[in-house]
């Protein structure tokens, strides 16, 4: 299992559009990707649950990647967060 912390810089947070992009991106990988904010977690491939986290600008989430190709997925997802969120 690999994980990283990320502080969201998008002014509206993980709102509909980036959540949609993230869900689409997460579906590309065979590994389980989970986003955690405080006590709440959501699968990165699940759009509604992601939006349900209500992540705002400046808040920090923990992204966990678990699976056979987690090393490669880790790099790709991290790059995705930095580019889009």
């Amino acid at each position: 299992m690999k994980s990283f912390e990320y502080t969201v810089t998008d002014p509206v947070g993980i709102h509909a559009r980036p959540a949609g992009l993230l869900a689409k991106e997460a579906k590309k990988y065979p590994d389980t990707i989970t986003i955690t904010k405080g006590e709440k977690s959501a699968g990165a491939a699940k759009l509604m649950a992601l939006m349900g986290l209500g992540v705002k600008q400046g808040e920090t989430v923990t992204v966990t990647i678990e699976g056979e190709s987690e090393d490669a997925t880790y790099e790709a997802i991290k790059a995705f967060f930095e580019a889009n969120l």
């Binding site: 959540a19 759009l47 649950a49």
Partner: peptide, 16 residues
């Protein structure tokens, strides 16, 4: 227009 893409994705959402 992006909202309609998001709507389409919401309909594909696993939990839903």
């Amino acid at each position: 227009a992006e909202i309609f893409n998001v709507h389409a994705m919401m309909l594909e959402d696993d939990d839903y």
